[in-house]
Computed example of a mutant assay.
Amino acid sequence: MTVPGSPWIDLTGRVAAVTGAASGIGRAASHALANAGATVLLLDCDADAAAAVAWQICDVGGRAEARALDVASAADWQEVGDWIGTSFGRLDVLVNSAGVALKDSVGDAGLTNYHRTFAINVEGSLLGMEVALGFMRRAGKGAIINLSSSASLRGNPMMASYGASKAAIAHLTRSAAVEVLRAGHDIRINAVHPGLIETAMAGDLYKIYDRLGSPDAVRAAFTTGRSGRPEEVADLILFLASDRASYISGTSIVIDRAASA
């Protein structure tokens, strides 16, 4: 609970883990959480890139550490959970930001892209929640933010598995939120649905929809005038991680400048 006159968001003393932290929304969220006082654990399959972001945070007085993680690996998650328990003894916030967007269509031969997409986007988020909830149940509180997508709200030609995976994340979020609250834990779990955000994944999108023409043409088709910035999504994630969002759980918040309205 916040008190009148307190800083708008203060996460001092809390430990936050972010997957996909080496780039894009994950990187922006890591900076935002650290700026609010949290110790941030940057988890990414690219350990060197994650370490570089951690160094940037520490260089300006923040607290951050980086570690390699394949989010689709249960063994990797177990090792990360053990590390968090030994080194920090707590986990207050989890941001499941790691994800992939691969080109595929319903009816394509083979399930390769489907399996990879669901392994990273859905199973990775589920494994992260399992580890985080182990800490949060013992503490009786915590916050989890899962990255879904506005692509889950409409049909996606040539990106069917991606949209389906993000819809699955939103449903897992709702189910988990209800379960933990009814069990008596003050743990909030929410999903964030970004629209087109200027990240490396946006570059993949431009390639997938190159039939539309230039990146500007793709932006015109998928946005209401402009794409978003990772920092804009990070601000929403920071709010949901904080006590300012104490009565928000089990919901999906779309952040796409009315593109899907």
Rank of each mutant, 00 (worst) to 15 (best):
147 L>A: 09
216 D>E: 14
147 L>D: 06
38 A>V: 05
259 A>K: 03
221 A>H: 14
78 Q>N: 12
190 N>D: 12
133 L>Y: 08
95 V>H: 11
142 G>N: 03
75 A>Q: 10
199 T>N: 00
66 A>K: 05
165 S>G: 10
79 E>N: 10
67 R>K: 13
14 R>L: 14
40 V>P: 04
73 S>I: 11
152 S>V: 07
113 N>V: 09
228 G>W: 03
64 A>L: 13
39 T>I: 10
191 A>C: 09
13 G>W: 02
145 I>D: 06
90 R>P: 00
125 S>D: 00
96 N>G: 09
245 A>T: 05
61 G>N: 09
188 R>T: 03
227 S>V: 07
168 A>F: 01
138 R>T: 15
69 L>M: 07
128 G>H: 03
68 A>M: 14
241 A>V: 09
125 S>F: 00
246 S>E: 13
251 T>Y: 03
77 W>K: 02
207 K>F: 02
116 R>V: 12
189 I>D: 02
135 F>N: 01
250 G>F: 05
93 V>Q: 03
117 T>N: 00
253 I>P: 01
248 I>K: 02
12 T>P: 00
255 I>M: 12
155 G>W: 02
89 G>T: 04
77 W>S: 04
142 G>Q: 04
215 P>S: 04
167 A>V: 13
139 A>V: 04
104 D>T: 11
15 V>H: 01
59 D>H: 13
55 W>L: 15
108 D>A: 11
229 R>K: 12
18 V>R: 00
14 R>M: 11
211 R>Q: 14
48 D>H: 06
83 W>C: 07
94 L>Y: 04
192 V>S: 07
65 E>D: 15
138 R>F: 05
182 R>I: 08
91 L>Q: 02
242 S>V: 06
162 Y>N: 06
202 A>K: 03
130 E>F: 12
29 A>Y: 00
131 V>C: 14
66 A>D: 09
27 R>A: 15
101 A>C: 15
29 A>S: 15
114 Y>L: 14
135 F>C: 08
227 S>G: 14
158 M>D: 15
207 K>R: 14
101 A>L: 15
150 S>I: 12
62 G>F: 13
72 A>N: 06
9 I>E: 02
17 A>N: 01
220 A>G: 01
157 P>I: 12
243 D>Y: 03
149 S>H: 08
81 G>P: 05
209 Y>Q: 05
161 S>D: 10
34 A>W: 01
258 A>C: 13
179 E>F: 08
5 G>D: 05
136 M>F: 06
138 R>L: 15
102 L>H: 10
95 V>E: 00
256 D>E: 13
77 W>L: 08
149 S>E: 10
156 N>E: 15
143 A>K: 01
3 V>T: 07
129 M>I: 12
214 S>T: 12
175 S>Y: 10
50 A>E: 13
65 E>G: 13
233 V>P: 00
159 M>S: 15
31 H>I: 08
130 E>T: 14
196 L>Q: 03
185 H>S: 13
